[in-house]
Each structure stands twice: as C-alpha cells, then as structure tokens.
Write a protein that binds this DNA or RNA. Sequence first.
DNA 1: CTGTTAGCGCTTTCAA
DNA 2: TTGAAAGCGCTAACAG
Lengths: 350, 350
Amino acid sequence: MSAPASKSPATLHDVAREAGVSLATASRSLNGSTRKVNEAYRQRVVEAAQRLGYTTNLFAQAVAKGSTTTVALLVADIADPYFSSIAAGVIDAASEEGLVVTIAVTGRNAQRELDTVRALRGQRPRVMILAGSRTTGSAFEDQLRGELTSFEDTGGKVAFISQDAAPFATVLLDNRGGARDLAVALASLGYRDVAVITGPPEIRTAEERLEGFAAGLAECGIPLPADRIIHADFTRDGGYRGTQELLASGASVDLVFAVNDVMAVGVVSALREAGIVPGQGIGVAGYDDIPTVRDITPALTTVRIPLEDVGRRALQLATGSVHDAGAAPAPGEPAPIRTETIIRGSTPRR
Amino acid sequence: MSAPASKSPATLHDVAREAGVSLATASRSLNGSTRKVNEAYRQRVVEAAQRLGYTTNLFAQAVAKGSTTTVALLVADIADPYFSSIAAGVIDAASEEGLVVTIAVTGRNAQRELDTVRALRGQRPRVMILAGSRTTGSAFEDQLRGELTSFEDTGGKVAFISQDAAPFATVLLDNRGGARDLAVALASLGYRDVAVITGPPEIRTAEERLEGFAAGLAECGIPLPADRIIHADFTRDGGYRGTQELLASGASVDLVFAVNDVMAVGVVSALREAGIVPGQGIGVAGYDDIPTVRDITPALTTVRIPLEDVGRRALQLATGSVHDAGAAPAPGEPAPIRTETIIRGSTPRR
DNA sequence: CTGTTAGCGCTTTCAA
DNA sequence: TTGAAAGCGCTAACAG
C-alpha cells in the first residue's frame, strides 16, 4: 500500500495565484461561458493550470452553479446484454454532451429500485433514465412515481425506456406490436402449435409481448391455450427451466416463443440438452436481437430493437437535445422505436 | 400534507428550520457520523426531512468533506460481456460500501483513455478502476501514468485489472499461465496443428495469452509457426474475419485458439458459415468464459475467469476493504485471480 | 449535546 | 474587462 494522501489537488485559487490573476478571471478563462477575458490573461491561466495539473472540481462547480453534469442510469442487470447495449448508447450520447453517467443496478426488485432512485437523487443528476423493466401492481409503484415527480419538480428530468410511464418522458418500445408482427410472420411460415415462455406476470414488458404475440396468433386463427404459457424468470436460466417444464408436460409444440432473447438462448440450450435440435421440428424465437443470438446455432429468429439507439434516444429525450436529425419526427414527442421481425435459422418454413 | 414542490430541492437549511433546530443539529442527525444527538431532536429532523422530501446533496457534502463517494470505472466497451460482467462486480461491491460508480468507455483508444481519465479526475473519485485492455508502446502510456500518479498523489486510489501496472494496485489476471494451461490441456487431447487468432499487437492481454499459449504448446513439442498467428480486432468480428483469413490461407489446422471468447464466438460463426462444424475435425477454444459461450453450439472450451469477482476485487483492492474473507491471502497484496481451464464440446478428444 | 461560525472550491453578481 | 465579495449546500471546529 502506498502512503496516505499527501497533497490535495490544485484548486482554482492556486491557479489564479500562479497566473497572477484573480480567482474570477481564472474561473472565467477556464470554465466560463462567455469569453470576456483578455487573451493574454487567458493564456497565462491556461498555462498555469496545465503546470499545476489542475482539473475543475466538478462537485464544487455543481454546488456553485446549482446544476450537475451527471446522468443516472438504472438498469436491472448490467451484465445482461439488453441493458449493457442500452447503457452503451446512453454513455455514448452522454459523453457527446459532456455528461458523465453513473449506473446503478436494481435487480428487478421494486423496493431496491425505489431505494436506488432515492439514493441517486442525492447526486442531483440532470437526468435519470430508468431502463429496468417496469413492474406492475407493486405497492412501490406509487412511491416511485412520487419520488420521480418530486425529482422533476425540483428541476430533474426523467426518461423511461419501454412502456409509457404516465407523466414521464418515455422511449416507447412497441412490445405488443413487435410481438404481434412476429407471430404473424411465424404463422405464415407454417407454425401452428405454439408455446410461450414468458417472464413473471408483474413484468410489464413480458406481459405486453405475450399479449401481442397471442393477438397475432389469434389473427391467424391459431389458439394459445393457457397451459402453453409458462411463466419463468426473465433470464437465460428462466428460459432454460421453463423449457424443461414445457418438455416435461409432454405438450407437442412446433414453436417456442421466449419473450426475450436471453430466455430464448436458455430455451435453445434446454432443447439441445433434451436431444432436440432447434429449428428441426421445433422452432424457437426470441425478442430484442441481442448480439449473441446471431452466433448461436441455429441463429435465432427475433424482433430487432436498436438497443444502442434506444439508449441514445432516452438521453436525448431527457436532455431535449436532438442532434439526431432525421430520426425525430416531432421534437420532444415520444418517437416510437421501430421494431423489425428478423427471421433466422431457428424458424425455418415448415 | 403540504410540501408545495418548490423549484429547487429542499436543503438542509430548510429541514433545520422545519424541525426548529440548528443547521448543525440537522446535519448531525441526518448524515453525521458519531451520533451525539438527542433522540427527540433527531426524530423531529428525520420527520422534517421526510416531509420535505429532502435528500442530502452529495456534491455539497463532498465539497465540504473534501472526499467523495464516487468510483470511476473505465472500460473499453460496456456492451462487451467481459466488461459488463466486471462492471457488475464493481457496482455490486461499490454499492455495498455506499459508493456510486460512474462508467466511462474508452473504446480501446489510448488517446481517449487519457482524455477520459483527465475528465474523470474532475469528479474527484475516491477510486478509479481501469479495466480497459492496457496497450503497450503507446506514446500516451507515460502521460497516463503521470495523470494517475498525480491522481494518487492527491489522495485518489487507482486499481488496474489485468496486467501489473507498475506502481498501481492491480487485480492480476494470469493470462500467460491460463493460456499455457489451456494449451497443455488441448495438446493432451490430441491437437497438433494449431492456429491462433489474436488481437492487435499493442493489446497486452492478447499478447500475453498468445505467448502463454505458444509456451504451453512448445512444452508439448508442438510448433506454432508465425503464419499460423493471425492478428485481428479484439472483437467478435475480429474473430470472424481472422478465421476467414485463416481459411483463405489454405492452412490445415485441427485447432483454432482465439485469445478471447468474443473472438472465439466469431470464429465459430465463420467456421460454420464455411461449412465446417466446430468440434468436428477442427476444435475451437477461447478465453474468459463469458456467459454466452455455454450456449453456443458446441459449447466453447475456454479459460474461466471469475469476472464478477475480478470487478469486486478491484474495488476492494482500491478501497482497502476486504470483506471478502477467505479469499485474500495477504491483505493488500495483489492476490492473483485463479484461472481454470474448462474443456467443453468445442474441443473433443481427437 | 447544541448552536455559531468558518470554511470547502467554484461561480457570479456588482462595483471599479 | 477585471477583481472583490457574496453565496451554493454542507461539514467541522469551536464555543456555549
């Protein structure tokens, strides 16, 4: 271990002295907005700062200005490709605007999500992006809404990703529509006996996709009996176990739809383990189009969501900046994200 | 039932007034360390805070205390499972200590990494964790070292992940040893004609794994001709293209080792696309044991690194907290991470 | 134990 | 333009 802290970082004050100017001048030439500073002075200040290895103390700056450069991002699980892709988009867009993003994980736990939001408020972030799957019926929902409302009342901005969150800005993911389209596409490929592995009933995203998928099937005259709907964890292992359950039930199906790709990956593995080759006799489809589904065998049919864009969009929606010309129809409007059905090897024509 | 949402967050001052106590008392009962506050007062303060929806302004607190609760994590690409798993570990460990983590991505660009470190210093983070693959020979390396040294001189802590970074704490990943063991294991399975798809020469991790692998082969009397070593991007697509290149060269190999799993995934896909079934006639191995390699077909042989632990360890190493009893041999020492060869279906005995 | 009062590092009027 | 000085929200001596 090295010796405990020796010096402390150079302050603006140090820089001012070193440059022989006033604090105010130093501030203005280093971080000031309107350049009303004598170029010669500015030069000296910049050099002094350089020499001293000075970096603006963002915290102090934030306190003085009353506004920060922080973006808080809440995700259920950062190791999940769905969220890490979104995070990549958020970070990218944020750094373009000179914003720093702090990530917190909620683990799909409403209580924890609430606590996290509360804790994060202490950072006075400029914006707060909630990407964790919204749950429904939770007693915490009202409290969360309250916390966020109060956050906005005090100058913060919040953006949700996924389903419409009442008074808050939202990057809308058309789960129902995407799933419906997928169902129709699959039906037209000849699939008739389908089962769905979905997430816990409280997860809205899972519910919506399930509903949309069922609706699409119905349009094509294909039934989706209740006993063909299996609830499991919204994870790879959930898909895996759900499939085992399905297999154990002895149901004869020609297609399994998992409401998200990580679950679908679990489905594929479970099938394989049971000696069934996905894509031969039984099709598998997922949702999200996370990077890995292209590399599993067979490649997975899914519904593509431009995840990074979603993250980017969420940030822009919240900050009100739309550098993304050509993609924003009505400025400030919750431009829905376009979703696309991607048929791959896991669902050949029957 | 009032709290008319003012335009700015409630301050400690507001709380103190609402509770009818002094600023100091409010501070002490809300955030103070040693509780020397009359319980009745404390109660009133807490209630007032509650009523006003007060949350400590962490920035102001940081300015006043001269220390923050921030951890800065630098990764090359947050969407890469390697990094997102590490991030998960860091975040987890950090939140246990009440620290907030901000993530920045450097995209394996030394210049950008340097800039990012500089920018991040403005946050005065308690610790800075660099997980991006260290590059070598870059002109920026010295500058980076300088920046970090100065950061430590002014009270910060830095931790590297991967290879020993001179004066800084490091969670050591034994790339050479892990790759060597893998090579030996593979040799004993009967592989003799091997090719390696590695990353750009500047990436130390890639180089080390390559060296270790070559050494292991050498121990077993297996050559690794220079023309069997292909350099490509350190990504999935790099592995993919590298494999195409290998195939085009007409070399006859019975094993392809990609220096990391994401590349190996690309290898598998490229092989498949060329009509070659990985694991039949040609084996494939990777490194890292990211979650997805278990789900591709065939499952990938690899070297397991406990990624989340690595992240957790990095944080603990930097903060000096070792709640992780039983895993730390010599407190403060750079406990090397144990690595494990995992043979899976992609490399059956020949 | 409680309240007063200086700061922390920076921004920003407000005069000069 | 520049500098002096008053904060920003909070903590930490220091008296009371």
